[in-house]
């Protein structure tokens, strides 16, 4: 989340707007925003409705639930639903015609998209926002 904050001004100067989406309730999203000094939209997708449309939702395995609970993380409470489903971390760039221009999803949580790849895609789209 902080990595995106660092390139936020570059994203904007290339005509991009950053939206972060998680299944957490707006209250929890607000906490995330404040704790990390984020200056972009943090949206609340309770029930993973939008994440499902992007094909990202998976059920948390029973043995992983025990680990989350062991760390005091009750996803049912954080997410406001009892499904214990989560989205895979993923980043998409959608152009003005609603077409996906970059799609990065990895089931391996240790791999994240290089922020530079986002800027490269925005540059190739070339669509500078009208100032």
């Amino acid at each position: 989340m902080r990595a995106y904050q660092k390139i936020l001004s570059e994203i904007r100067s290339l005509g991009g707007e950053l939206l972060a989406i998680s299944p957490q309730t707006p209250d929890k999203s607000q906490a995330t925003l404040l704790k990390n000094f984020l200056q972009y939209e943090v949206l609340s997708d309770v029930g993973n409705v939008v994440a499902r449309q992007f094909g990202l939702v998976y059920p948390v395995a029973a043995e992983m639930r025990r680990i989350y609970l062991g760390f005091g993380v009750d996803l049912a409470e954080y997410n406001g639903d009892a499904s214990w489903e989560l989205p895979l971390p993923g980043t998409f760039i959608v152009d003005r015609s609603m077409t996906v221009r970059l799609s990065f999803v990895d089931a391996d949580y240790t791999k994240r998209l290089e922020p530079a790849a986002i800027l490269d895609t925005l540059r190739t789209l070339g669509g500078r926002a009208e100032a």
């Binding site: 707007e17 972060a20 995330t32 971390p89 993923g90 760039i93």
Partner: peptide, 13 residues
């Protein structure tokens, strides 16, 4: 207004 960069994350606990 422009291009959307949409990033999904699991949450912050």
């Amino acid at each position: 207004r422009g291009t959307a960069v949409i990033t999904f994350y699991r949450g912050v606990w």
